[in-house]
């Protein structure tokens, strides 16, 4: 009785995997490889690559700075309020990015309830700046990092930490040489997923950070803009993003396998 049911479920499984794979395949098929670099140059893709790389790097740094502590405490917490905290992490994932961007405007915009004071007191304005693009990308991608890290922290062997502590290691030392090596696969997988998502951020970015070449025009924005005049250029820019994604995949997969085992 086991085999037929396996066969039945094989079709939807195959279909959905094919469905995930096809857009990347179709895109690489239609990419104008011959004039690839000329086209990228003509449509400002290198500039956008610079912005995207910068945004991605800063997002990763912020993930380490804020995401690791958040994931650690989520993994440790088991009080009644934990559910609310966990829901907060999931919120950006269930929120459409455009809505996230509008929400960020309502908070950090010139008339936003925090942005007003940022502008008045410190002269800081986040919308339409690189910092805004980073904030938008961090908003949508940090949850992926935190979720992966939380799972890693949960699955770790706490006894090793205790042993290290008993042997006289400082809490910092315990974290660096015992805890972190244990969650390293989760860290890599989370970082790869978050970076991929950050590089792909579109909706929140165009809403909150706008579209200015060299400052907030990231690769997805450049691809969208190119699509309006030259589909070829859009294919070329998209190919860059696909290749970046494919490069991140092995890291994400390796980390995930180690977390599961």
């Amino acid at each position: 009785m086991k085999k037929p049911s396996k066969r039945l479920t094989f079709l939807p499984a195959l279909l959905v995997l094919l469905f995930f794979f096809l857009p990347a395949f179709g895109l690489l098929m239609r990419t104008p490889w011959r004039e690839f670099f000329q086209i990228l140059g003509r449509y400002g893709a290198f500039e956008a690559m610079g912005v995207s790389a910068l945004v991605g790097t800063i997002v990763l740094l912020l993930c380490c700075l804020f995401g690791i502590p958040a994931a650690y405490h989520l993994a440790e917490a088991n009080g009644s309020g934990t559910r609310v905290l966990r829901a907060a992490v999931l919120l950006p994932l269930v929120m459409p990015p455009v809505v996230g961007g509008i929400g960020l405007l309502s908070v950090f915009g010139r008339r936003g309830f925090l942005g007003r004071y940022l502008a008045d007191w410190f002269g800081v304005s986040l919308p339409f700046t690189l910092a805004g693009a980073v904030l938008a990308a961090f908003f949508v991608s940090a949850p992926l990092f935190i979720l992966a890290m939380e799972a890693g922290f949960r699955a770790r062997n706490r006894r090793l930490e205790k042993i290290a502590a008993v042997c006289g290691a400082s809490p910092m030392r315990v974290f660096v040489s015992v805890t972190f090596p244990m969650v390293r696969p989760a860290f890599l997988s989370g970082a790869a997923l978050a970076l991929g998502r950050a590089l792909g951020e579109f909706g929140a970015t165009i809403t909150f950070a706008g579209n200015l070449p060299g400052r907030t025009r990231t690769l997805p924005l450049a691809a969208y803009q190119a699509l309006q005049t030259s589909p070829e250029a859009a294919f070329a820019i998209s190919a860059v993003l696909i290749l970046a994604g494919l490069a991140l995949l092995p890291v994400a997969i390796r980390g995930r396998r180690r977390v599961l085992h």
Binding site: L105, G109, R110, R111, F128, A209, G210, L212
Partner: peptide, 17 residues
């Protein structure tokens, strides 16, 4: 910002951004 359509530009003015 260079917006994808005129109404997106108008909205950013209307928001006061």
């Amino acid at each position: 910002s260079w917006e994808p359509d005129v109404r997106a530009a108008l909205a950013k003015v209307e928001f006061g951004e």
